[in-house]
Design a protein around this nucleic acid. Structure first.
Lengths: 331, 331
DNA sequence: ATTGCTGATGGAAGGACTTCCACGCACTGA
DNA sequence: TCAGTGCGTGGAAGTCCTTCCATCAGCAAT
């Protein structure tokens, strides 16, 4: 079939140990010998078998990536960030979707271990004790991405979601908005949305404003569309802070459907700065998180862990920023 | 460290061969023995090492997935389809982005080979001879996905892009539109867009209509927005068939920006039925391709290849369908 | 009682690499 | 001249499985 390291050794007249050394640059090999080996490799168009390599070295150069759903709004960009950095460091990624189901997540971590991945980048709606336990059993380097560990046990990469909401409320209030509603679904604690909601509530109270909630079952366009439509006719509000862009756009459309104006009657601010925000009319003011960077930084973090590079902090916090567009512009 | 098959064998008082048989159900094992083995596995919380397994069996249960860019409009859904089916059949996927660069694609196929993947699902803007050659060298089962091999050498899963355009032109013409423009970028042959353009031209000529082209550099929102804005003021048209949804939405916005009406003045039809189509105002008429199914079917196809199941055709053609919405409704 | 099967299991040889240990050679310093 | 020092290299063990071949007990058929 295809050439093995042994064939290369014979062709070059050296031992397989030497070929391995050339391949991995793991020791000095005389230039002349090295050349012979490289020639033999080229001649036989030899490519090392990564599986055998993995078995012998106990390092597979692959990283497991567990996400709730790649096809969700901006997960793909994040995954792209991971993969790009992975490639730079000669890693590959095994991608799995968990749908945020604990059982599946636990199972996946097990499978990742079977596959002998060198590390796992993990995303989940909320981190539970079960997760942490599984991580500990698995004994694999883990980096949480867009998933907070409130107790800071696991290395993580996040933005300050609560702080971002605070900024948003401040921003809207400065624009003279007082009846600011929060559009999101109710989840258990530890969720991204719950953090965002927390910041919202804190800053509203801080400013002696009454929090208003527009709750949806799921965090989706259709649900949000209906919820906002209904709410707008019932209670007077002049601004909406949505838990994500998709819902924010639903809010815009719902408001327009009810013959009100954005931003004149109601300003809308989204979350995440997905492509969607640019594709709405009026364009959406949104809180930008660097989605690509999320993945890129998490993967870079992973390589640091793997290569024993010094790490300054276990909880990386990425910057966020309000990007102002027409949906909340001054009237 | 962690238990090996040998430990399990000792614990259960059998040979490792028997453990392997229990694990793989590759031969009959007496019920009582099997129970002892399973108990031992549970007791040691043993999980087989997939790498060692891969080396010994020459099957890794992993599939390489090469896409131009996961973060592109609907690639993520497609990848999700692949992964879901892969999981059903106990496969995993290694995901890589090629950016559609030939050199990277060739390199990736090589790396996939190193990784000893059982098969490759391959997506590319256009299939070239170099690809086919590399496939042949690699000797790995390949399934093309959303990538046509005009010569039908490689198994593939596609829709009839040219036919879809024909349908779209027919549809618009029946609605009384005569000045139908095609919005897309000019690529070399073999591209999806080129197929779509081909069908458009064919049906326009068939109906004695003059083809009108709005060309963009890249197939993106911004490029399309500018191109359409400019074009609309110069040449009278009453319909636009866009090469994808993103550009179609750009077209809608450009038309509105120029104070014209959609669909009254100009009807717009998109391609791909991404989530975006629902999120536009007016909602976008689009040619639906089953994006999730694209991936799911391709992966299912792959498993058939791998499991030697009978295959009816090497070129799977998925159905498409015009989904009518407000952007092209009767006025 | 002997032969011939079959069902259940053990033994051992790979599979393609990495890596540790040892060794030869040329050269250095006393 | 001889021990000491490295560099460059070979040999072989080890990694954890799968799988082929052999074995063996038990039972039906002759």
């Amino acid at each position: 079939m295809s050439a093995t390291i042994y064939d290369v050794a014979r062709e070059a007249g050296v031992s397989m140990a030497t070929v391995s050394r050339v391949l991995n640059e793991t020791a000095v090999v005389k230039d002349e010998t090295k050349k012979r080996v490289l020639d033999a490799i080229a001649k036989l168009s030899y490519r090392p078998n990564a599986v055998a390599r993995g078995l012998a070295s106990k390092r597979t150069k692959t990283i497991g990536v567990i996400v709730p759903d790649v096809s969700a709004a901006f997960m793909a960009e994040l995954v792209r960030g991971i993969e790009d950095v992975a490639r730079m460091y000669h890693y590959h990624i095994i991608l799995c979707n968990s749908d945020g189901l604990l059982a599946r997540e636990v199972d996946l971590i097990g499978t990742m271990w079977e596959k002998q991945v060198d590390g796992i980048i993990f995303m989940s709606p909320a981190l539970l004790t079960e997760h942490v336990n599984t991580f500990e059993e698995a004994q694999i380097p883990i980096v949480l991405c867009r998933t907070d560990d409130p107790e800071g046990r696991i290395p993580s990469v996040n933005i300050d979601n609560s702080g971002a909401s605070i900024d948003a409320v401040r921003y809207l209030h400065k624009k003279g908005r007082n009846k600011i509603a929060f559009l999101g679904s109710i989840h258990h604690e530890g969720t991204l949305t719950s953090e965002r909601r927390r910041g919202y509530v804190a800053e509203m109270e801080n400013r002696k404003l009454t929090p208003i909630f527009i709750d949806t079952a799921r965090e989706e366009y259709q649900d949000a569309l209906l919820a906002v439509r209904t709410h707008v006719t019932m209670e007077p509000i002049d601004a909406i802070l949505a838990a994500n862009d998709e819902m924010a756009i639903a809010a815009i459309h719902a408001i327009l459907d009810e013959k009100k104006s954005v931003p004149k009657d109601i300003a809308v601010v989204g979350f995440d700065n997905t492509k969607l925000s640019m594709m709405a009319r009026p364009e959406l003011t949104t809180i930008a998180q660097p989605m690509y960077d999320y993945g890129a930084v998490a993967m870079r973090f992973m390589t640091k862990l793997l290569l024993d590079e010094p790490i300054s902090t276990f909880r990386v916090v990425l910057p966020h920023q309000i990007l102002e567009h027409a949906s909340s512009a001054d009237v």
